[in-house]
Amino acid sequence: MSSSLNRKPVSQKGYLLVENVEHDFVRTQVLQNIGFTVQAGEVYALVGPSGCGKTTLLHLCNGLLDLQDGIIENTFQKTASMFQQPRLLPWKTCLDNMTLGLKAKGWNKKDRNLKGLKLAKLVGLQPSDLEKFPHQLSGGMQSRVALARVLLLEPDLLLLDEPFSALDIGLKTELYQLLLEQQTQQDLAVLMITHDLMEAVRLSDNILLMKSKPGRIAASFKLTRPPSLRDDAWVYQTTAELLQQPIVRESFELPPPTSPSPVDLATREWSYTC
């Protein structure tokens, strides 16, 4: 442990170090030689086709799977996870669901409800919604509750497994916006999974492109423009640029581009390493 501490330049605020991680499910290798480091305030996106081991990797990071081979070091104080589904307890009201993490930390009911009510407003939940049970709310509202449940913990590392992928595009953008505000305000580190390249381009500083069979990191893209300055045009342009890259097409098993690129690659604001 301490030797790897010395190897990596480390900020005071904590980091998530993944090194040489390999993982097998009954003789099938699902992850091969995975390595990257997420520092405080950085947003990393894991992008790749379905079944390339993204979720497995995330489960190794949040401890839902036991590490078989390699090093995962998480020196962040509070790690929080969001899943593809809201995963609310159906027998608890939304407020109780939101504050579940605080209850686990031993907060009393009054304090945690007070804190929950404050945050509910921020994520767009009405006080009347909070008394309801999850099944009485729409999918979007349930996702807001799940987001609030995570934000209430004031984490410094967030692991996101496509939490809003089932929502419509407007709602998805809104919730990601909420998340990004928190991210910049609190210097949150984020490791997110997505199979949507455009989403990754919009939100992240670094894109780790994964390839399947076995899951490995094929390339890593660094986006230099800060997220607050990324308008739609820039996002479309950059996504198109990335999709021109042979390595991206190969990883998503797209056919080679038929026509010469309509996009001028000279203006690109990203770099990549294989």
């Binding site: 949040n62 401890g63 790690t79 996870s81 899943f83 995963r87 307890l89 579940l100 993490g101």
Partner: peptide, 16 residues
């Protein structure tokens, strides 16, 4: 199991 995983990541104590 999904709720179980969620509860694990929230570090719910055994009693909860």
């Amino acid at each position: 199991n999904q709720l179980n995983e969620m509860a694990q990541t929230l570090q719910l104590p055994k009693r909860m």
